[in-house]
Simulated scan of single mutants.
Amino acid sequence: MSFLNSKLFSSLAVIAMIYVSQVDSQSQFKTVVTYLGTDFILPDGCPLPACLEDDRVCNRKKSEMEQRYNNCIRGEDGLHLGCITDVLPTKVTITIPVYANFCSAYCYEKDLTMVNKLEHCPHAGNKHEVDPNLFSLF
C-alpha cells in the first residue's frame, strides 16, 4: 500500500469513527459492515422512541418515523448502504458509509439536513452477523 493510500485509509477510518460516535444510537441497532475492505460498526434499523401512552406528540412523531422508515425500506433506498462524501484538506474526496441501511437515517437524524446529504454508497458492503452480547463492548 502506498503512502498516499495508507494516509487516505487512516483518514477514512478516523472520519467514520467520529461520525458514528456522533450518531445517537442503541447497540442492538448496530451492524458490522465490511466496505471496501474496512470494517465499520454502523447504525442500522429504526430504533423508535419510547413514548408514554398519553403523550400524543411523541406517539405522533414515533408513528411518522416508523411510516417513513417502512416506506423507504420497501423501495430502492432500502437496498443500499448510506454514505456521505467529504473533501479532505488535500482536495481528495472520500465516500464513507455512515448507515448500514440508507433508510435508517430517517430514524437516527434529528432533522433532515443529514438525510439530504446522504447518498447511496457506490459499492456494496458485506453485513456480518455478530453475537448481540458482543455489542456491549462497542
Rank of each mutant, 00 (worst) to 15 (best):
residue 2 S to R: 09
residue 5 N to K: 12
residue 5 N to A: 11
residue 7 K to D: 09
residue 8 L to T: 07
residue 8 L to C: 06
residue 9 F to T: 12
residue 9 F to V: 08
residue 12 L to W: 07
residue 13 A to L: 13
residue 14 V to F: 11
residue 17 M to A: 14
residue 18 I to W: 05
residue 20 V to M: 04
residue 21 S to E: 04
residue 23 V to R: 07
residue 23 V to Y: 06
residue 25 S to A: 13
residue 27 S to R: 09
residue 27 S to H: 07
residue 28 Q to C: 08
residue 31 T to Y: 04
residue 32 V to H: 01
residue 33 V to H: 02
residue 34 T to Q: 13
residue 34 T to V: 12
residue 34 T to R: 12
residue 35 Y to N: 05
residue 37 G to L: 11
residue 38 T to V: 13
residue 38 T to A: 12
residue 39 D to Y: 11
residue 40 F to L: 06
residue 40 F to Q: 01
residue 41 I to L: 15
residue 43 P to A: 09
residue 46 C to S: 03
residue 46 C to G: 04
residue 54 D to R: 15
residue 54 D to Q: 14
residue 55 D to G: 01
residue 55 D to N: 15
residue 56 R to I: 14
residue 57 V to W: 08
residue 58 C to M: 12
residue 60 R to H: 12
residue 63 S to K: 14
residue 64 E to T: 09
residue 65 M to N: 03
residue 68 R to T: 14
residue 69 Y to G: 02
residue 69 Y to T: 02
residue 70 N to T: 15
residue 70 N to C: 08
residue 72 C to R: 04
residue 73 I to D: 06
residue 74 R to N: 11
residue 75 G to F: 07
residue 75 G to C: 07
residue 76 E to P: 06
residue 76 E to L: 10
residue 77 D to A: 14
residue 79 L to N: 14
residue 80 H to W: 15
residue 80 H to L: 05
residue 81 L to H: 06
residue 84 I to N: 02
residue 85 T to Y: 00
residue 86 D to I: 15
residue 89 P to Y: 07
residue 89 P to E: 11
residue 89 P to Q: 09
residue 92 V to W: 05
residue 93 T to E: 10
residue 93 T to G: 04
residue 95 T to E: 15
residue 97 P to H: 03
residue 98 V to N: 00
residue 100 A to P: 04
residue 100 A to E: 01
residue 103 C to L: 00
residue 111 D to W: 02
residue 113 T to K: 12
residue 115 V to K: 04
residue 115 V to D: 05
residue 115 V to Q: 08
residue 120 H to K: 15
residue 120 H to A: 08
residue 121 C to D: 00
residue 121 C to Y: 04
residue 122 P to W: 06
residue 123 H to D: 13
residue 123 H to R: 12
residue 123 H to W: 10
residue 124 A to D: 11
residue 125 G to D: 03
residue 128 H to S: 13
residue 129 E to A: 11
residue 129 E to G: 09
residue 129 E to H: 09
residue 130 V to N: 05
residue 134 L to D: 05
residue 135 F to P: 03
residue 135 F to R: 09
residue 137 L to M: 14
